[in-house]
Design a protein around this nucleic acid. Structure first.
Length: 266
DNA sequence: ATGGCGTACACCGTACGA
């Protein structure tokens, strides 16, 4: 007989790790998450601030590039970037990182950090790339699901799942991030057994994870919920909470995204 | 009202984000 251990897993699009490192440090110290998936690090691997994070008590696995994209996973124990490309989907853009971490029970936790393409505008080349990327992601995650019971897929999905995840659904209708094809791609993951754990719990109305820098988006709560934590059914059944932490968005020079944290008794 | 702001790289503007 052993006590269940509360494991806290977070995702945060930091919009430049170099710029946000002080804020990340403060947030890690205050929040003490066990595992953190970062997106838009915009940091080549050679420049990754591994030493600074280690002084904060976190090991890191990372896959970055200059200027754009870049993902990283932080954990209390050493970890490795096991997969950094969707298998069979050639892409120079660093948007994916899969790693495996041990759980207190002795079981393994598979963590997949995603920075889903933005898509720019419906009908654009970048939109087509986003849909192709999402189709390849689905095929890969079906394989991952077959191999891992405890699987969490989290990150910046650049898709608001439902109208209640959008500050003004009428204004956004048909737009990138809410288009039917994007939502269908996300719904397909749910059909395959992933659970958006945020919606397992009662949440405040108008809960968002991203707000436009322009036009006082945050002050007016003009946002989208696009940063998601999807869990395999086995893991979702162990989820006891999922919250959006708006506090970092109130800082000077904030990221336009704010962290989302899920707690698992596992 | 398709702007608004922020980051990066490079150059004093452009690409991109969401």
């Amino acid at each position: 007989m052993y006590d269940d251990v509360a494991l806290r897993i977070a995702t945060w699009n930091v919009n430049s790790l170099r710029v946000r490192l002080p804020q990340l440090g403060e947030w890690l110290a205050a929040s003490q998450p066990d595992i953190v998936a970062l997106q838009e690090t915009k940091s080549p691997d050679a420049d990754f601030p591994a030493a600074a994070l280690q002084t904060l008590g976190y090991h890191a696995a990372f896959s970055g590039q200059k200027t754009y994209n870049g993902v990283a996973v932080l954990a209390r124990q050493p970890l490795a970037a096991e997969i950094v490309d969707i298998p069979g989907f050639t892409d120079p853009q660093r948007r994916v990182l899969a790693t495996t971490l041990p759980l207190a029970s002795g079981a393994a936790l598979r963590v997949i950090d995603l920075y889903v393409p933005n898509g720019q505008a419906v009908g654009s080349e970048k939109y087509a790339y986003k849909l192709e990327w999402l189709a390849a992601l689905r095929r890969w995650l079906q394989q991952e699901s077959a191999q891992h019971q405890n699987l969490v897929v989290l990150g910046d999905f650049n898709i608001a799942p439902e109208d209640r995840d959008v500050h003004d659904p009428k204004a956004w209708e048909g737009n990138v991030h809410v288009s039917p094809a994007e939502r269908a791609a996300l719904a397909a993951l749910v059909e395959d057994g992933f659970v958006d754990v945020f919606r397992q719990f009662e949440q405040p109305e108008r809960s968002f994870s991203w707000w436009d820098y322009r036009a006082a988006g945050f002050r007016r709560n003009h946002g989208l919920r696009i940063d998601l934590i999807l869990a395999s059914r086995t893991l979702a059944a162990r989820c006891t909470a999922c919250v959006i932490d708006r506090e970092p968005r109130t800082a000077e020079r904030p990221s336009d995204h704010t962290p989302v944290i899920a707690t698992f008794d596992i």
